[in-house]
Structures are given as C-alpha cells and as structure tokens.
Simulated scan of single mutants.
Amino acid sequence: MFAAAKNIYERDPAAHSMWEVLLTYSGFHALAFYRLAHYFYVRQHYLLAALVAHWGKRTTGVEIHPAAKIGKHLFIDHGTGIVIGQTAVIGDEVTILHNVTLGSRHPRSSGPRHPQIADHVFIGAGAQILGRIYIGEYAKIGAGAIVLQDVPAHTTAVGNPARLLPK
C-alpha cells in the first residue's frame, strides 16, 4: 500500500507529504479497504468481503464491490460519491474524480455488466459510465458525461449522452 500512497503523492500537486496522503486521503483509504475486501472475495469469504467493503464505503464515501478488478496505481481524487460495480475492470494508471459511477444498465443480465476501463484513462467529476462498454487507453471522459457506448483509445467523450470529440 506504500506504493499506492507514493503514486498519489507524486500525481497530486495538492499533496504536501506522504503522511498527509497516508492519514487523510479518502481515495487511498478506499483502495486499502477494496484490496482487503477483494482478498477475502477471491478466497470465497463473501460475507467478510462484504463487511469490509461496507465499512470502507461508510468510512470513505467510495463504494467498490469486492469482485471488481482494479489495476495498479488507480488515483481516486476527492473520492466522495464514487461507485464501482461488481464486474467493472479498471486498468493501470487510471484517474477517477468524485461522484463517478461505473455501473450497470441491466442488473439481471449474465456475464460482465459493468464498464471495462483500459490503462491511463481520465474520468472527470460526475461522469456516469454505464453498461458493458469499453473505454480505450488514454481516453478522457469529461465531467458530467453519460457514457453508454464504447470510447476508442485516445478519444475524449463529453456530454449527455456522451459524444466523441474529434482527435
């Protein structure tokens, strides 16, 4: 977890020290709760995983399902209001701002129901990425965007419903 704190410290210009990140950053704490809950989930200790995830949500304001798959160096900045669903996959070096949902559009469907986010994606505040869609590497999702379809790599999506901006 020290590497996660170091990543946040290096990426956030508002961070004054590693101690500040370790002690006060809700995004860092949310990832710590998630990693523990995920550890229990993959070992089929579902109730314990759910309890850890619930405590994490109550403590940080960030709800991450223990079954979600999260890569290295996720940066959750101003974590309040983030929801990451059960079958969501998040790649490496992704940045997520506050009030973002990686949710499902069809809660009863089988298989993956949540977005798959590639490496180096930026997701702006209030964005809603819903359904079984893919967000390509280095894509940017604008603040408040409602994304219901795939976003190719190196592309920016903005608006409601989201539209792709020319490269």
Rank of each mutant, 00 (worst) to 15 (best):
M1K: 10
M1F: 10
M1Q: 10
F2K: 08
F2R: 02
F2T: 13
A3I: 12
A3V: 05
A4R: 12
A5M: 03
K6E: 10
K6Q: 15
K6G: 00
N7Q: 07
N7F: 13
I8H: 02
Y9I: 07
Y9H: 12
E10L: 05
E10N: 12
D12Y: 08
D12K: 10
P13A: 11
P13N: 10
P13V: 02
A15S: 12
A15C: 04
A15Q: 05
H16P: 00
H16M: 11
S17E: 13
S17F: 11
S17K: 12
S17T: 15
S17H: 09
M18R: 01
M18N: 02
M18D: 01
M18K: 06
W19C: 02
W19I: 14
W19D: 13
E20M: 08
E20Q: 15
E20W: 01
E20F: 03
V21C: 04
L22K: 11
L23F: 10
L23R: 09
T24P: 03
T24F: 09
Y25K: 13
Y25R: 12
Y25C: 11
S26W: 00
S26P: 11
S26V: 01
G27A: 04
G27D: 03
G27E: 03
G27F: 09
F28S: 02
H29P: 14
H29V: 09
H29E: 08
A30Y: 08
A30C: 01
A30K: 12
L31F: 08
L31C: 03
L31I: 15
A32N: 11
F33Y: 15
F33A: 07
Y34A: 04
Y34Q: 08
Y34E: 09
Y34F: 12
R35S: 03
R35A: 00
R35D: 07
L36C: 04
L36F: 10
L36V: 15
L36M: 09
A37C: 07
A37D: 07
A37V: 12
H38Y: 13
H38S: 14
H38T: 13
Y39N: 01
Y39P: 00
F40I: 00
F40Q: 13
F40W: 14
F40P: 02
Y41M: 10
Y41S: 05
Y41A: 11
V42N: 11
V42W: 09
R43K: 15
R43M: 04
R43A: 02
R43S: 06
R43G: 00
Q44A: 11
Q44V: 01
Q44M: 00
Q44K: 14
H45E: 13
